[in-house]
Each structure stands twice: as structure tokens, then as C-alpha cells.
Write a protein that binds this DNA or RNA. Sequence first.
DNA 1: GACATTCTGTATCAGTCGGTAAATATATCC
DNA 2: GGATATATTTACCGACTGATACAGAATGTC
Lengths: 195, 195
Amino acid sequence: MPRGRPRAFDADKALDKALKVFWRKGYEGASLPDLTSAMGINRPSLYAAFGNKEALFRKVIQRYANGPASYVRIALTRPTARAVVQHLLREGVQILTNPRNPRGCLAVQGALACGDSADCVRKELIRQREALVTALRNRFERAKSEGDLPADSAPADLARYVATLMHGLSVQASGGASRSQLQRVANLALRAWPT
Amino acid sequence: MPRGRPRAFDADKALDKALKVFWRKGYEGASLPDLTSAMGINRPSLYAAFGNKEALFRKVIQRYANGPASYVRIALTRPTARAVVQHLLREGVQILTNPRNPRGCLAVQGALACGDSADCVRKELIRQREALVTALRNRFERAKSEGDLPADSAPADLARYVATLMHGLSVQASGGASRSQLQRVANLALRAWPT
DNA sequence: GACATTCTGTATCAGTCGGTAAATATATCC
DNA sequence: GGATATATTTACCGACTGATACAGAATGTC
């Protein structure tokens, strides 16, 4: 056990609470009182444990990737490109419309457009979203080389198409679209997939 | 000519400047100094001419709909459902990636997630986005009754699919995707369209 | 020219923003 | 028990937020 007075709160649980706040209100829209009251701690404890607002947000992003968004990594392990996309879209719709979570995707609505002070957070989320495109492109290139995708298909374009769908679904979910509505959109989108 | 001292600035030009600021930074991210300095006026002039920040934003939304986003109404007049979608996607990509404008779509990034004080602006943009879905659904229902769309197609689902694509393209553009990348995504997306 | 009307510029408002200094409380190490 | 180390609490910081009061300037009406 470390020296000194022990922390009176569970840092992981507090991080989950912060995740919910950032998820719902975005980086700029989440104020420190919003965060501290949700986390059940006061400001100096937040700063001691997490650094500052931006550092807290970066930790929240990691937790998001390893928690609610972990289905993305799982989807990439599916045997065929089509199965990857199916898993991604259908599981994505589940997360985006999970009533226990805020609507939409943190990587989209965390800081899509913001003031100058939040610009490096915005750029970080751009990198996160672009990482999805890259991962998909790599997966589809492999699929193409395996004969799983037609020789005339364009993995980079397919990757961006799927990412565009995911982010569009996030906007839809954020606007209140229902789970079944988005499921039907996902099914429709799959008709564009090369056979 | 009205009585009193005449206004020393062009209200329409000032509104255009405000549009650019809101478009790039979002409703919350755009501060009053951002707005007034871009508009070339000082704060009391802004309040006298436009009310307050929220009223200014609502006027900016209208101007956006009648200006950069006017291609949407034009697209709806195309003779076939497929032509509507083609026009929408291709013209949309042009606007979303126009180097003279901020990247992305105001209706998406104006207030996707925000603090409580901006919540009614957020809801207003949700209504704006949902209006696109409704207009598309009506147009596709007409197309179906005209035999332009197959009898087994679902206009509501097709409408939401197209809206999802548009909003996804907006997120992509906001993240720096190039015009040609998005054009290829739009072409790919059209492969899901019923024949 | 006197007056009413409207806009502009300065200066300022109360409230909130993210962030912190200082004092107190609670643990381990010796 | 005493020293040390860490956490919590209270109170506060300067900067910025959206929004205004007030005085001066520029017009039309009479």
C-alpha cells in the first residue's frame, strides 16, 4: 500500500462518470462543476488524480476505446470483410443507441467543431477517427489479397465508406433516431458491399 | 430612409461573417469577440441588430439553408429518386469540401453535443437535420408511387440512409478528408440504391 | 436650429470558466 | 510517537463569458 492518505474514491469509477459527461456534452460543453459533481469529488482531487481537463479527456478517450468502443477491435478479427462490416455496423448501432449510455459516439461529438482552446483535443479525435479508416483499409487490403474481396475493389474507398456510415449513424443516434431505424439503415448500407 | 443614425455596416455581410465563424467553431465554440471581430462591429451593434447570440445563430441557420445548403432543395426537384440522391451526394461533397468555406456541415457541427445552455440550439439543429429525412422520405414515397422506385422499397429507410451518408460525409470533411476521397465514397454509396 | 430617433464606442456588469494556494485530515515508515 | 507523504476541503485567482448602461455621434422631422 502506498504511503500517505489513501484516495477516498475509485479512480476508475470516477473516470466512467467523467466519460458519460464528456460523451453527452462534448469536451467544451462539459464544465468542471459538471465533471466533479458527476464524479463525486471536488476540483483539487480531480487535478491531483488526472492532471487537468484535457488530460482527463485523453484518459476518457482511452477508456472509451477499451470499453464501449472495444467492439471495433473485435469486428476486425472476423474472418471475412463482409463479416467485419456487418459486425461493425450492427454492434455499432447497439452501442450508439444503448439507453444506458449517452447517444452517439464520443469520437464524433466530443469535439467536432470548437473554439481555439479545444483545438488540440479536436485534432486528437480526428486522429482517432482516422485510425478506424486505416484499420479498415488494412483489413480490406488483406481481404483483397486473400480473394475475399474482388480484385477490382478499392480497399481505401471501402474503408472510408464504412467509416462514413459509422459516423453518420452516430449523428443520427445523437439526433434521437431509434435503434430499429438505424438497424435498417445498416442493412441497407450493406447492399453496396461488393460480392 | 429610416429615421436616426444609419447603420454603418452591411447586416447581410456581417451575417455571412458570423456564419463562417459558427460554421467553423460551432455555437458554443464561437465567442462574442470571435463574432464581433469577424463581423467588424462591436458588441452593442450586434445586440441591436440581431438580438443576442442565440438569435444571431438562428438567423445564421436560415442564411445557411438559403445559401450554401440551397442545393438540397434543388436536388429534391430532380426527376428520379436516383438523380435526387446523386445530386445530393455529389453537390453535398462539393459544399462540404469547398476551400472557401469551413469544412463540414453547419447543421451537424453547429451543436452536436453541448452544455445545457446551448441545448435548445442543439434541438433546433436536430429539427433541421430531421427535416432533410422527412423531405427525402416524401420524395421517395412519390417516386415509389410513380414506379420510379421498386414496390418493395422502403422510402423511410432509404431517406434515413441518404441522410446518414450526408452527415457521415460531413464528419469526414470536418476531419480533413479530401474532395476526391468523398466523391469516391459517394459513388460507392450509390451502389446500395435499388434499381 | 431644436428635437426625436437610431447607431457607435467605451466602459462595465454579474456569472462562470479552468486552475490553484494553503490548511487540514489520514495514512505509512521509522 | 514523530516524521513524512498523500488526499481532501475551503477559499480564492485572473481571465473570459454573454450581455448592458451610458454618453456621444449621425441622421430625419419639424
